[in-house]
Design a binder for these strands. Structure first.
Lengths: 328, 328
DNA sequence: GTGAAAGCGCTAACAA
DNA sequence: TTGTTAGCGCTTTCAC
């Protein structure tokens, strides 16, 4: 690997000048600049990121923590993050925590030790310990879809209350009155908001909230399947407002196993956008544009990395993507 | 952040001794060692990974390239990789290429520039350019489920021919004779092998291979859905051997849209293990244990990073996980 | 416009 | 068993 020294030696100039050229310092004579670039190309020189990192104190790496990589909710957001990051020569480091706070803490510490340029935590788990951990890092942090009350961080999030409200409203519009809600853990901010939107929509339509109709589970398909069993034990339930798509899939799978069919025997809604193939399917849904959320968060993170002193931002993306198979 | 110098100063010893303690050099008096550790704890000292990296020439980061993070095939393997890696204080850097060779090349170059400790490419795309790119890196590389003929690299892979063979055999055992095959791109080694296993099983059972029954597509659900339409145009097809699970899901979804039901109207098999919730479902499948593959590959990579001079390894994991809903 | 020199935090010879 | 020294490749003063 060629170094800055070799280039300097080859041209009979000092390495400072070479460094200036690499870093686009204007104080270099045009001729010198050109000859340096020429040799850089000749020698296929690549700056040593680690050596540079030692001085600048950081590496061009951004840690992105997601709860479950198989969940399209995270996957779609990651697409947006990656687009912005790689464009600016930063490298996304995706970490799949499986909602395990200990794992997340461990990775954040590693990112700190490796002097990452930034961190984007995207899991919805509230956790004091994690908050402590995040307070200790010395790089910018932008939160996606989560709040950390004690920390003054930029926050980008979809309007989950609105999404859930709209999804529930669609079910009500379809004529349903006994609507179950599948919720995630109550320690998740996102889940809490979606539960709230569901309750608000019911109340605004004069339907009393019945706690018995709210089922709590994990956010995966298996959990949806398990809750499906409990849920259909209530013979009077005609619709389900599911926290997320994966759980909804699980419910539909269970329903099928007992001979019930979506749209015919019951309606089901998700409080988030669905994977592409399901965009015009039997699922009612309402949610924000996840890729845009990912992009926006990353843009803000990059600005912070470049030491922007803008005031703290809290950006809410409305639930613009709404679909109801019985309407559209 | 405390440094090695502060610790040395505080104890009135040299930084070399501190460095020795940190790196578990046996040539340190027990008393000295203890006092150093005490101060390390007092000052909450963390070694600067970047500074260390400058000397050792590498960072404790391993790049893992997958084609599609939403595909459980990759996700399951990643679980195994992450377990081994974090245990040894390495950090997994997952990159989701969406099967885009350009993106992969870019990330590999970044990993090289950042002096990553190792790379695990897991996409099945054959590509000369990628091969060039991988030849240039100076860290160990272990391949999962892919071959690079020109490079002498360790390779860990599931026996895809066997998986496909077994899956097809199960369909034949169920009485099928007109079995379609959904294949991935022919530039993918894995896809080519699965196609081969399908053909071999047919031939071994005296069923001539009919090219018309082989459909090529992308490896996602949408593609399966699209191919479903072509496929069911052949009214005589009674079973489908799908390259992967996502495509199979797509087919089943399309089938449903035209009123066809799995197990009743047709059988479908996947040449890989399925996500947990589908382990005892309507899908026939055969495949290797993906988590084990991930673990094994990572163990070998770690050994290479520690300069093990073992001969090159090619480890094949047989398709031990077989399921047929009509048998079990 | 350019160069010389210091130094980031650490490891690894070599010396004692 | 420990200390001294050099240096990894780069950026960044500070002179000139």
């Amino acid at each position: 690997m060629a170094t800055i020294n070799e280039i300097a030696a080859k041209l009979g100039i000092s390495k400072s000048t070479v460094s200036r050229v690499i870093n686009n310092d204007p104080n270099v004579k045009e001729k010198t600049r050109e000859s340096v670039w020429r040799v850089i190309r000749e020698l296929d020189y690549k700056p040593n990121i680690i050596a540079r990192g030692m001085i600048t104190g950081s590496l061009p790496l951004v840690l992105v923590i997601v709860g479950d990589i198989q969940n399209h909710y995270f996957a779609k957001t990651i697409i947006g993050i990656e687009k912005v990051l790689t464009e600016k020569d930063y490298m996304p480091v995706i970490y799949n925590s499986m909602y395990d706070v200990e794992k997340e803490k461990r990775l954040i510490r590693m990112a700190k030790d490796c002097q990452f340029a930034g961190i984007i935590p995207m899991t919805g788990v509230r956790s004091n310990e994690l908050e402590e951990c995040l307070r200790d890092v010395d790089c910018p942090v932008v939160l996606i879809n989560r709040e950390l009350k004690k920390l003054e961080l930029d926050e980008i999030y979809g309007d989950d209350v609105e999404a859930s409200y709209k999804a529930t409203q669609e079910l009500i519009d379809n004529g349903h009155r006994v609507i179950a809600h599948l919720s995630g853990s109550s320690t998740s901010t996102v889940s809490a908001k979606r539960r709230l939107g569901y309750c608000m929509a019911l109340e605004d339509n004069g339907i009393p909230v019945d706690e018995v109709l709210i089922f709590e589970g994990k956010l995966d398909m298996a959990s949806g399947y398990a809750l499906g069993e409990k849920l259909f034990a209530h013979s009077n339930i005609t619709a389900v407002c599911s926290n997320n798509f994966l759980m909804a899939l699980g419910v539909v799978r269970y329903a099928k196993s007992i001979g019930k069919t979506v749209l015919k025997d019951f309606d089901i809604a998700c409080c988030e956008t669905v994977p592409d193939l399901y965009e015009e399917s039997a699922y009612v849904y309402a949610g924000a544009d996840l890729e845009e959320i990912g992009k926006k968060a990353t843009e803000i993170l990059l600005k912070r990395i470049e030491k922007s002193e803008e005031p703290r931002q809290k950006i809410c993306f409305p639930a613009t993507q709404v679909y109801n198979p019985k309407k559209d």
